[in-house]
Each structure stands twice: as C-alpha cells, then as structure tokens.
C-alpha cells in the first residue's frame, strides 16, 4: 500500500456492521482498514497517515466521544465521521463541536456515509498540503540572512525601497539587491506572492 493513498479507518465493535462499511467503502475504491476497538486502533494504525476515521459512538470500554478527545490531545488531526445506533441530539452536538465531520444515525443512507468520508478525506488532504506548504516556506525563510529578513518584513509591510533604505541606513541599490535575493530565495514570483507567504508564516507563528 502506497503511503500517499488516503486510508479510511473504521472502528466498530459489531463485526457485521464493520465488514459492511468496509465493503461499501471498498466498492467505491477507498483503501480501508478496520478495528474492533479503539485499543486495537491505537496499537495497529498509523496515526499520521493521511485518511479519515469512521467511528461508532457506542464502543465497549470507552465511548467514541472520549476517544475523539483523546486523539485531539495527542494532536492526531484525523477527521472523524461518527455513526451511532440512537440519534442522541446532545451527543451529536458535542461531537460536532469537537470537530466531527458528520454524525450519522444507523441505519444511514450509503451516499451520506460516502459523502461524509469524501469530505473528511478532502479536508485531511487540504490540511496536509497546507502543512506541507508551511513547512516548505519556513524552510525557505531559514535560508535568508538576518538583513534579508529585515528587508522582507519591511517590503511586505508595503514600504518603498527608498523608505527601507532610510530606515535601515542602507543605500537604495543595496536594498534592491537584498530584495531580489529575498524574492529568489522565497520563490516568490511577485510581491503579492511574497505577502501571502509572509502571512502564512505569521499565522503559523501566532498559532503555535
């Protein structure tokens, strides 16, 4: 199994239910792995692999909601689709608030599950590509010299070369050279590109 193909993971204690969901997801071409309990899942699954989790809310031992909290505390950002035997409104609200993709009541329409899984996988891959992009950008920024970082900060703040030169006590020509270096090293094709990169990086630093 190639690592970049997203994996749908099913956790349900009822074997027939588990196999039926597995079969349904495979029939539309998903890669699927299933577990009878959350313990098995924690031992057997690759938590950082791309994918989505289909989780029964009524599990032996620990409820699906508690498990959702545990995954969040371990910073496993797998999107979760909950399925439940009894449509309990407060429970579904709690699950959705904690970031679940969908809350399906058994028996559910197959299309609803497939849509939810699809949405989950899309969200996951989007999140992953954003994370990858961010990692790339911060790597690029690492290659800048201190002076170049200073210039970049002022450029994205909208200052003209002349103003930057005055502020940093440099000649305007030197500023131009630094600025070209910044654009090249950050792989920005235009000024708006650079501003966007800087924004993403700033967002990341404020978030972490």
């Amino acid at each position: 199994m190639s690592t970049d193909r997203p994996l749908v993971i099913i956790v349900d204690d009822d074997p027939s239910m588990r196999m039926s969901i597995e079969s349904l997801l495979r029939s539309v071409g998903h890669a699927v792995q299933s577990f009878a309990s959350t313990q098995e899942f924690m031992q057997g699954a690759q938590l950082d692999a791309p994918g989505c989790l289909v989780l029964d809310i009524r599990l032996p031992g620990r409820s699906g909601l508690e498990f959702q909290r545990e995954l969040a505390s371990r910073e496993v950002e797998l999107p979760i689709v909950f399925i439940t035997g009894h449509g309990d409104v407060p429970m579904s609200v709690a699950a959705m608030k904690a970031g679940a993709i969908e809350f399906l009541t058994k028996p559910f329409r197959d299309q609803d599950l497939l849509d939810a899984v699809h949405r989950g996988l899309e969200l996951d891959s989007q999140r992953r590509s954003e994370a990858a992009m961010l990692a790339e950008l911060s790597q690029r920024r690492e290659t800048l010299t201190p002076r170049e970082r200073e210039v970049m900060a002022l450029v994205v703040a909208g200052r003209l070369n002349k103003q930057i030169a005055a502020e940093l006590d440099l000649s305007e020509a030197t500023v131009k050279v630094h600025r070209a270096q910044v654009m090249r090293k950050m792989e920005a094709k235009s000024l708006p590109d650079l501003v966007r990169f800087a924004d993403s990086l700033a967002l990341d630093t404020t978030r972490s």
């Binding site: 239910m17 039926s20 495979r26 058994k106 197959d110």
Partner: peptide
C-alpha cells in the same frame, strides 16, 4: 437496530 443497519449497509455495498 444494529442488525438492521448492518443489513442496509451490506445491501448498499452489494
């Protein structure tokens, strides 16, 4: 409900 849900999903998968 449990076997019922399983039947529906199995039939859909089939």
């Amino acid at each position: 409900n449990q076997p019922l849900a399983s039947m529906v999903t199995n039939a859909n998968a089939g």
